[in-house]
Simulated assay, not measured.
Amino acid sequence: MGEQVVSVASYGVEPGLRFAVLLDGNGGCRTLDMEAVRRWTPDDGVIWLHFERDHPAAAQWVTTKGGFDPLVAEALLEEETRPRVEAIDDGLLIILRGVCAAPPEEAEVSSAEIDLVPLHVWADQRRLVTLRDSGHYITALRDIRLALDKGKGPKQTGELLALVSDKLVRDLEPVLDTMDEEVDDLDELIFHGEASEVRERLKQLRRRSVQLRRYLAPQRDALNRIEHDDAPWLKERDKLRFREVIDKLMRFIEYLDAIRDRTGILHDDLSTVISERIARNSNRLAALAALLLPPSVVAGLFGMNVGGIPGVNDTWAFIIIVAFVAVISVATLMVLKRINWL
Rank of each mutant, 00 (worst) to 15 (best):
Y11D: 10
G16F: 01
V21Q: 03
L22Q: 09
G25C: 10
G27D: 08
G28D: 06
L32P: 10
L32V: 10
L32F: 13
M34D: 13
E35A: 15
A36N: 12
R39P: 02
G45F: 01
V46I: 12
V46H: 08
E52W: 01
R53D: 03
P56I: 07
A59H: 07
W61T: 02
W61G: 03
T64D: 13
G67H: 12
L71R: 12
L71S: 11
V72S: 11
L77C: 07
L77T: 03
E78C: 10
E79P: 09
T81K: 08
P83R: 04
P83T: 11
R84P: 09
R84I: 08
R84S: 12
E86P: 09
I88C: 11
I88W: 12
D90P: 04
D90V: 09
G91A: 12
L92S: 07
I94K: 01
I94N: 01
I95C: 07
G98R: 00
V99R: 00
A102T: 00
A102Y: 00
A107G: 14
L116T: 03
L116K: 00
V117G: 01
P118M: 02
W122G: 00
A123K: 09
Q125M: 12
R126H: 15
R126M: 08
R127E: 03
V129Q: 02
D133R: 06
D133F: 05
S134N: 09
I138K: 02
T139N: 06
A140D: 06
